Each structure stands twice: as structure tokens, then as C-alpha cells.
Simulated scan of single mutants.
Amino acid sequence: MAMHPINPATGLPMTSDDYGGFDVGGSPYGTDVHSQHHPWSASYPTWDSGGWNSF
């Protein structure tokens, strides 16, 4: 059974047996391309039942 390296930035396994390439989430080794995207804490105005909320 092959052991795949783990991307330290995401904790996800790499798609190949070496440290080059991408992890299973699409991030290059040592980076997390999704770290700036947090849908649960929007930095833009959102709508709820009371109207527009600005952060």
C-alpha cells in the first residue's frame, strides 16, 4: 500500500507519491487555496429577514 505525503497546509493527502503536484482538494503542496474563502463569515453585505447587513 502506497503512502501519500500530506499537505501540511491542509492536512489532505497529495495525489501522487511525492511532494510535487496537488492535494486531493486542489491545493499545491504547502499551500491552502481555500484558506481565504469562509462562506460562514462573509465580508460583503448579506440579506436576511431584517434587510441588508453590512460587516
Score class of each variant (00 low, 15 high):
D32R: 04
D48T: 01
S49V: 07
V24W: 06
G21Q: 07
S16I: 03
Q36W: 11
W47G: 06
Q36P: 00
Y19I: 10
N53R: 15
Y44G: 03
G51L: 04
A9G: 01
G50P: 00
G51P: 01
H4C: 03
P39G: 11
S41D: 13
G26T: 10
F22P: 00
H34Y: 12
G20K: 13
W40D: 15
Y29D: 00
D18W: 10
G11F: 13
Y19W: 11
M14D: 00
T46H: 07
D18Q: 08
D17G: 08
P5A: 07
G30Y: 10
D17A: 14
V33N: 14
Q36L: 14
G25A: 15
H37G: 08
D17H: 11
S16W: 06
S35A: 15
P8K: 03
F22H: 08
S27W: 06
D48H: 04
S49M: 04
A9V: 03
S41E: 11
P5K: 02
S43P: 01
Q36Y: 12
N53T: 08
Y44M: 10
S27A: 14
P13G: 05
G21F: 10
D23Y: 06
S27V: 06
S54K: 02
D23H: 07
S41Q: 12
T10H: 01
G20S: 14
G21V: 07
G20P: 01
Y29T: 01
P8W: 05
P5Y: 04
P39H: 13
S49L: 05
Q36S: 14
S35E: 15
A9Q: 02
T10G: 00
A42H: 04
A9F: 05
G21T: 06
F22D: 00
T15V: 09
F55A: 05
P28I: 03
S43R: 12
Q36I: 08
F55H: 06
Y29W: 14
G11I: 09
W52C: 09
L12R: 10
P13H: 08
W52P: 00
W40S: 15
P28N: 02
S49N: 06
T31F: 15
F55N: 03
D23C: 12
A9W: 00
H34T: 14
G25Y: 03
G50D: 05
T46V: 15
D23E: 05
G30R: 09
P39F: 12
D48W: 01
N53G: 04
P13E: 08
A2E: 07
S54D: 03
H38G: 07
D17Y: 12
Y44K: 07
G25N: 09
M14C: 05
T15D: 02
